[in-house]
């Protein structure tokens, strides 16, 4: 709570900068309009005009807010113009990709921790795989899978998976190696089998690392999905809204899609955080 006031101040400053930016960027157009109608704009008129254009270069915050309100609350959920409909399309792909990615990441991490050969040969490539700008190849993956006959859901989920497995692998390897040698020796003196050692020592101690990396992974998965939606011809999803908006110069639509994506990201991260809190509490790590 102590940091609430500073956060709100920063947010207020950002919105203020945004309004000022809207005036600055839209002024040119407003002046042109006024000139055409032989009017001279006073400062207050100018500001009012820049904040209420149909296709502004930078829409003012309240315009975006109205657009979001109209497309979420006032539209039917099944409507193609509803932001909730597009958000749901994006969310379902994100979750699928995240699920696959997290599973793959954990499996890889277990392999890396238990097999030295895998550690030495796979780990460098896991890291190298991230220097390839996967987002940049997203359109290719989509087109190629499309020509094989896979459409819509799966190709996007594959991109999201690729983006989300990496943080999980790295975090989980760190976590599974977190128990000290002393603790591992203790398990040995208790004559614990390898499986017992894994379930009762390594897995619990890896959980904090796992959840930290899951939060990163879920955000990455969302970014992957949004980018994956771009080349599908702007059918459905927040990424498609972005692309359609940029084709038709509907800046308000772009910004509302951006905010939809931001809200989705926040929702997902908070959800993972909530699960983390419940799990750690039940395991007795409660803070």
């Amino acid at each position: 709570m102590r940091s609430l006031v500073p956060i709100l101040t920063v947010l207020a400053a950002m919105i203020a900068i945004w309004y000022a930016g809207a005036v600055y960027l839209n002024a040119n157009w407003a002046y042109q309009q006024a000139e055409r109608q032989d009017r001279v704009l006073t400062t207050s008129q100018l500001i009012a005009e820049t904040w209420s254009q149909d296709r502004p270069r930078l829409p003012a915050p309240h315009q975006v807010a109205t657009e979001i309100w109209e497309t979420t609350v006032e539209k039917k959920i099944t409507s193609k113009r509803s932001l909730i409909y597009h958000g749901w399309v994006t969310l379902s792909v994100t979750l699928a990709g995240f699920g696959f990615g997290a599973t793959l990441g954990i499996a890889l991490a277990i392999g890396i921790v238990y097999s030295r050969a895998m550690d030495m040969s796979v780990m460098p490539w896991v890291i190298a795989s991230q220097t390839i700008p996967i987002l940049a190849i997203a359109p290719m993956i989509i087109v190629v899978l499309n020509s094989v006959g896979m459409q819509g859901f799966i190709p996007k989920a594959i991109i999201a998976t690729y983006l989300s497995f990496f943080p999980v692998t790295v975090g989980m390897v760190k976590g599974l190696r977190a128990p000290s040698g002393m603790q591992l020796d203790q398990m040995k003196t208790w004559n614990a089998s390898g499986l017992q050692g894994f379930i009762q020592l390594r897995l619990p101690s890896s959980l904090p690392y796992l959840f930290t990396s899951l939060k990163i992974a879920v955000a990455a998965s969302l970014v992957g999905t949004v980018i994956g939606e771009l080349p599908t011809g702007a059918v459905a999803g927040l990424g498609a809204r972005l692309l359609a908006g940029s084709y038709y110069g509907q800046t308000v639509q772009i910004w509302s899609a951006l905010f939809g994506a931001a809200a989705l990201a926040a929702l997902l991260i908070v959800a993972v955080g909530l699960i983390e809190r419940i799990v750690t509490k039940r395991m007795g790590f409660g803070r």
Binding site: P6, I7, L11, A219, L222, G245, S246, L258, A266
Partner: peptide, 25 residues
């Protein structure tokens, strides 16, 4: 105290979606 949480949050957002806006500007 104000900027760190906001910055952390913004860093997790799909900022890349800003690309069409910047191309327009």
């Amino acid at each position: 105290r104000g900027l760190l949480p906001v910055g952390n949050f913004v860093a997790a957002l799909p900022i890349i979606g800003m690309a069409p806006v910047f191309v327009m500007w």
